[in-house]
Design a protein around this nucleic acid. Structure first.
Lengths: 235, 235
DNA sequence: CGTACCATTGAGATACCTCAACAGTGGTGG
DNA sequence: CCACCACTGTTGAGGTATCTCAATGGTACG
């Protein structure tokens, strides 16, 4: 169950092909390959590590008092995230099989930031992106109905995993999604079924969603108790 | 409605009395006094500003598609927060009357961070605190029932506004709290009433809550549909 | 003393949760 | 190869919590 340090240059070439801020440190990046539910290597006593998602996905989660798990951050391809040693009760794990990360020592990054103004700016940039990611989740979680939340999530995913046809490969299970949205798994399933029945999406495969009516999907978001009162909304 | 630049040294002395990271820049801090719903001064074309809450409270909010407002960040006394120019649709405003902030130019802070390693570390620290604050809200929002969310929020507030007797002065209205918790105002009110009727809290004044049964308040959090199924829970 | 705004409570409708059952999938070992 | 098992995904039924609409009392402020 130990993380596999991948020796091949395969992922380094993938890394070099990605347009991101920390290119200069690619040489010193540690390529880490993880399988599902495997923990991201923690801090080794230094300040911590920054990770970059080359392939797959990872999550940061905490366990609530009632035993439910709440996902606090969902790291997808091309996301940066930080892993420090002050992880109180937060677990950082890979979500998908074949998750590949590039790890950078935080002290190294900070040291480079001291000497390079542009580098420091990019470092602040990725930190701010972490905050922005969490705020996005906050907005999603603030949706009234589960259909809202799922729709908002799908639109977020489309930017990352969508192809030209509007097909989205979901990187996570319904269970993970339920923990991300803070609702029950059954409700997530029903939301998918409802959206499909209403012709908004189509479930191509178990983990592949096609956006049939993108307009309806966007307008889905933020309708409060849509079936209440007014019957102006019709097919 | 323009922000009042407060010339008095009164708040500077308050500022100096606070134990925080950016003491060295207190001399150059701009003391800003705001009244309720007044917007925090935006960027003047530079990178942005960091603010420190000396008194009162502020919020960062966005308007949803359905017209509801969602609070994305709640900045209380002793919190730092950043205001950039890339505020897409986010409004940053004072919540209470007599909100007093200390503003620092971000470029100044970053410049100082280049020459001072310890200062740079503290700068990273307050950035990380912003992320942590948002994650806390995420956990609160993930609560199952509104009683959960309110309880979690009260416990968060106790650390800031609680006195020895366990009395908490709420810095925000029910409406703001509803927008923070992403529920309706009525439900928030009912949650307060329920908690009081059950002897968990006592509403001393409109905006003052006394924690009567702290244990019950903590155990309140994370009970999923407590009245479902088992009838083991009794008075 | 009126006018906002905040706070509270009620009633009916809606959406969610829990429990339950079952189908589909993938991996493992006999 | 197939049986088995664990996990994922889906649907139904009944109960609970929340939403909306509505009305009312309280508070602050001009």
């Amino acid at each position: 169950m130990k993380p596999i340090i991948h020796p091949a240059d395969y992922y380094r070439r993938m890394l070099a092909a990605q347009p991101h801020a920390l290119k200069r440190l690619d040489g010193s990046a540690a390529i880490v390959k993880l399988s599902r539910d495997q923990q991201v290597p923690e801090d080794d006593g230094t300040t911590g590590h920054w990770y970059y998602v080359i392939a797959g996905a990872a999550r940061c989660s905490t366990i609530r008092a009632d035993g439910r798990r709440q996902i606090l951050d969902l790291m997808l391809v091309r996301d940066f995230f930080f892993v420090g040693n002050s992880q109180r009760e937060e677990a950082i794990e890979a979500i998908t099989e074949e998750t590949v990360l590039a790890g950078y020592s935080a002290v190294r990054l900070e040291g480079l930031g001291e000497r390079d103004r542009e580098f420091a700016r990019e470092l602040r940039e990725i930190t701010f992106q972490s905050l922005e990611r969490t705020r996005q989740q906050l907005v999603v979680l603030g949706g009234v109905t589960t259909a809202d939340k799922v729709s908002a999530f799908l639109l977020l995913l489309e930017e990352r995993y969508g192809d030209q046809r509007g097909d989205i490969r979901l990187p996570i299970t319904r269970y993970d999604l339920a923990e991300y949205l803070a609702v029950s798994v059954e409700t997530v399933c029903r939301a998918f079924s409802d959206l499909q029945q209403r012709g908004v999406i189509a479930l191509i495969g178990i983990r592949t969603v096609r956006i049939v009516n993108r307009d309806a999907l966007e307008h889905q978001i933020g309708r409060r108790y849509p079936n209440a009162g007014s019957d102006t909304i019709a097919a």
